[in-house]
Amino acid sequence: MNTPIPLSTASLPLVLFHAPVYAGFPSPAADYAQRHINLNEHLLTNESASFLFHVRGDSMNGIGIYDGDTLIVDRSITPKHNHIALAIIDEEFTVKRLYKRGQVIKLLAENPAYPPIELRDGQELRIWGVVTFNLHRLLNV
């Protein structure tokens, strides 16, 4: 995980189709184009507090966050128990599930090969932001 990538505020219009896409039996295709959309409106809760991060590693594979994916992280969301958080531990970024119950705070991987991260004396944990979306490329072109 490296430094945040600021999001562009430029509009990128895409066509939104009104027809649902079935993951079971195919549906006949028709001309269902309705309007152009701006992805920022759909992906960002707070545009000025949203950043992109590239994922490195496999600790979150269990929930579909893979090496090479791009995360949208919102700094304006208050982190809560069970959120997927972008955290800084000892000045290094990591993405993990936040466990916060009473005075117990730890970071949980979504891969059983990685143990929970519990802070030791002298370690500092900062929650940099909350992950709102994972952009996962399905085809390398």
Rank of each mutant, 00 (worst) to 15 (best):
P6M: 03
L7M: 13
L12C: 12
F17A: 09
H18K: 15
H18I: 00
P20R: 15
Y22A: 15
Y22S: 15
F25L: 15
F25V: 12
P26C: 03
S27L: 15
S27E: 07
P28L: 07
D31I: 00
R35Y: 10
N38Q: 10
E41D: 15
E41Y: 05
L44S: 13
L44D: 02
T45G: 14
S48I: 08
S50Y: 03
F51C: 04
G57F: 05
D58P: 06
M60G: 00
N61S: 06
G64D: 05
G64T: 02
G64S: 09
Y66T: 00
T70P: 00
I77N: 06
T78L: 09
P79S: 10
K80N: 09
K80C: 07
H81L: 07
H81M: 04
N82A: 13
H83A: 07
H83L: 04
A87R: 07
E91N: 15
V95N: 03
Y99W: 10
K100M: 06
G102D: 03
V104Y: 07
V104T: 12
L107Y: 04
L107F: 01
L107W: 03
P112M: 10
Y114P: 05
P115G: 11
Q123S: 09
L125E: 04
W128D: 11
W128M: 01
G129I: 14
G129Y: 07
R137F: 04
R137D: 12
L138C: 09
N140Q: 14
